[in-house]
Design a protein around this nucleic acid. Structure first.
Lengths: 357, 357
DNA sequence: TATTAGCACTCGTTAATGAATAGTGCTAAT
DNA sequence: ATTAGCACTATTCATTAACGAGTGCTAATA
């Protein structure tokens, strides 16, 4: 006894076997029915045959330890974020998804020769359909991918259209402004030079190395050089904010857990501005496998009534971006985690086949 | 008297002055407060000083003519789609939008050198913010725009990446499959040929004329010819389904007019599948100026509890796509119509400046 | 003849009431 | 250590009654 007054359950201490089972039972029941669960109902459904009174004692302890809360005196108990975290940690690896779900993906993964953006859009659309929650996917970061080809196209005296094709199969375009006018022929020379020099290098490498690389080749390029440096610098300096596709936002507003005015507004704001979601997806790119943010575990107030399940996707050589599902903290974690895991892996596979190396 | 039993108001007949004012008053009141309006409240707010009893008679007539309905016996009257149509028709040209709204657009319209897609995304985002409804914009149809440049990039033995740049500033890419492998050098020749031959022609023209044009030049191109025809056909045959950006869908679900379960579901479906919205935007491209679909006036059941305000946008030479706002039939038409009108014109101006001719 | 006052009537909203229900916490018995 | 029993609390649900907003009709009025 540490003097906190708890009988069998302490803060920051492993729960005993029975408490674990009770807690898990409560969580699963709440996930299924979205209603506070009481000792009576629990004593029926639990495998361990315990009387309501005993369960009440356990529940009381769990409440004291912060795993459960009551909405009011005579209501059942509802799991807290801490409880969901316990529950998720206790889950084993993602279960395999049923064949009928796998079949839904087959048109996406078989669509050879599609643009990456198209694959992403289809995937997130399907994911939203399967989960009935809001789903997001970030487009591949150009930075991490390697160069397949660059094109410079003159579109006016002071504007050049830059088109970058990455090995991952992503086409990015931007317009750069120049002070002096260049002929298309001249641009073709620069293009040829840049392609020869930088094909298969990552954008990051190119940006870091563009100066010295060109300098070392000085003998081969004469007046081309100065311009190539300048154009190349501009062309490869694409710190675009990163894009994402969102689907199924409206599903969230239908969910009973978001029927309160206040939480709805902040949710809408979050999906409106997108920055919070993008940051979370970016963060998730650093980890392997499925990443889970439960309620307050993510840093963005607007989303702290939600749980986010994310997973990164990649081609053969690089992590490119990530996908995510946003739902209520009482989501069916088993189902969602498995689905996200499967989707991310399949997406990785599909995109790897599309990649140009 | 035609024997229908109506006193002063007939189906398919112009309303008399007084009935018009009463109807307009009811509509504007309902637009403002979203609640059935009764004879009492109306007799206070109306400029014509009439007693509630008189107004009741007029309202009764209007109800008989299909302009008003009652939700139940002792409730006030609510305008029908027919009433909104009358109201909208009676509006004069779009009013000018306030300066403070114009200022919000200035960062968008001043962002020179942005990709067209980016401009569209910003615009629809802002429109959603201004209207607090769901807003859509269709991306420029490649078909109607003229060719600025085409690039063919070899990415594997049997795949070629086609990049089309249109005069409108849109970059489109797709992958085509070929049976025989071509060297990049060979593709460069084909590219040069296609660019020389078809620059400034519309995709439609190119597709129609590609065969004869090449045949007539037979003397200049030898074995290139057969391949160029084949590749060109594939490259320019882009019947992509057309894309769109959507913003502010969630706003709709907050609106009190969509709180019934049934209508919510069909709304979500409509935004999920997008086809209905795309068709409506396509349709709107054929008309000049603002186009208004009130309730049942559009052909898609899922959207028949909404009104849609659309307007096409264009560059100097062609209509490219259109924008639209989706809201309840009781939206503030004056405000929305003006805003859509202004937005479309500004978008046209901005994109014209971006265009490459 | 057009307008209005007056009145009976309908229906929805609201508040109050009470019974039923689902839950808890505590205590004493097992 | 477990459980039965009991007092207690809060929500939900159905019932009721009062109220209000609104209509339609009729008769009086300008």
């Amino acid at each position: 006894m540490t003097g906190t007054g708890n009988k069998g359950v302490h803060e920051n201490q492993a729960l005993n076997e029975r408490a674990r089972i009770v807690l898990q039972s409560i969580i699963e029941n709440y996930i299924e029915f979205s209603e506070p669960v009481g000792s009576r109902t629990l004593s029926k459904s639990i495998e361990f045959k315990l009387s309501p009174a005993t369960i009440r004692n356990i529940m009381s302890d769990l409440a004291e330890s912060g795993f459960l809360i009551q909405t009011h005196t005579s209501a059942g108990r509802v799991p807290t974020d801490k409880a969901y975290r316990f529950y998720v940690n206790s889950l084993s690896e993602p279960t395999t998804v049923p064949d009928q779900i796998k079949q839904k993906f087959s048109p996406v993964s078989n669509g050879r020769g599609s643009q990456v953006e198209h694959i992403l859009a289809e995937t997130v659309h399907l994911l939203a359909d399967l989960t009935k929650f809001a789903c997001v996917v970030s487009t591949p970061k150009a930075e991490v991918s390697r160069l397949q080809r660059i094109e410079l196209i003159k579109i006016s005296e002071d504007r050049i259209l830059v088109i970058l094709v990455t090995k991952a199969g992503v086409v990015r375009d931007k317009i750069i402004f120049v002070k002096e006018s260049h002929s298309q022929e001249f641009l073709n020379s620069v293009t040829a030079f840049l392609n020869e020099e930088f094909k298969n290098h990552s954008m990051q490498e190119i940006r870091d190395g563009i100066h010295q690389s060109i300098v070392s080749d000085r003998h081969r390029y004469h007046d081309l050089l100065a311009h190539a440096v300048r154009l190349g610098k501009k062309a490869f300096d694409l710190n675009q904010p990163g894009e994402m596709f969102i689907e199924g936002q409206m599903n969230l507003l239908l969910d009973s857990h978001f029927h309160e005015q206040s939480s709805v507004r902040s949710l809408i704001d979050a999906f409106d501005q997108k920055t919070a979601l993008l940051k979370i997806l970016d963060e998730s790119m650093k980890h392997k496998g499925v990443h889970i943010f439960i309620g307050i575990e993510n840093d963005y107030k607007q989303l702290q009534r939600c749980s986010l399940i994310t997973a990164s996707y990649r081609n053969k050589k690089n992590v490119l971006g990530s996908i995510g599902v946003v739902g209520p903290t009482s989501m069916n974690y088993k189902h969602i985690i498995s689905t996200v895991d499967y989707t991310a892996k399949l997406l990785s596979k599909t995109i790897s086949e599309q990649s140009y190396d």
